[in-house]
């Protein structure tokens, strides 16, 4: 299916968010937070969160801030 990942179109075969992260190259220990279609998806719910064609996925990590 086709997702928009951090603003870029990506084609994936995974059906849930946890599998999608692995397929996209984020390792199991990757320190990231996720949101689908502008809604937060906790790490513990990623494996149960089914993806749909056209979903918008945001993958965020710690950064400098003021």
């Amino acid at each position: 299916m086709k997702l928009t990942v951090n603003g870029t179109a990506q084609q994936i075969v995974a059906c849930d968010l946890a599998a999608a992260l692995v397929e996209l190259g984020y390792g199991p220990d990757a320190r990231v937070a996720t949101a689908i279609n502008e809604t937060f998806v906790p790490a513990g719910q990623r494996a149960r969160h089914a993806l749909s064609d056209g979903d918008r996925l945001e993958i965020l990590a710690p950064r400098q801030g003021g």
Binding site: N6, E58, L60, A61, G65
Partner: peptide
Amino acid sequence: SLRREAAGDGTG
């Protein structure tokens, strides 16, 4: 803060 992270980046 939080910002977008590319796979394998490791910056975060």
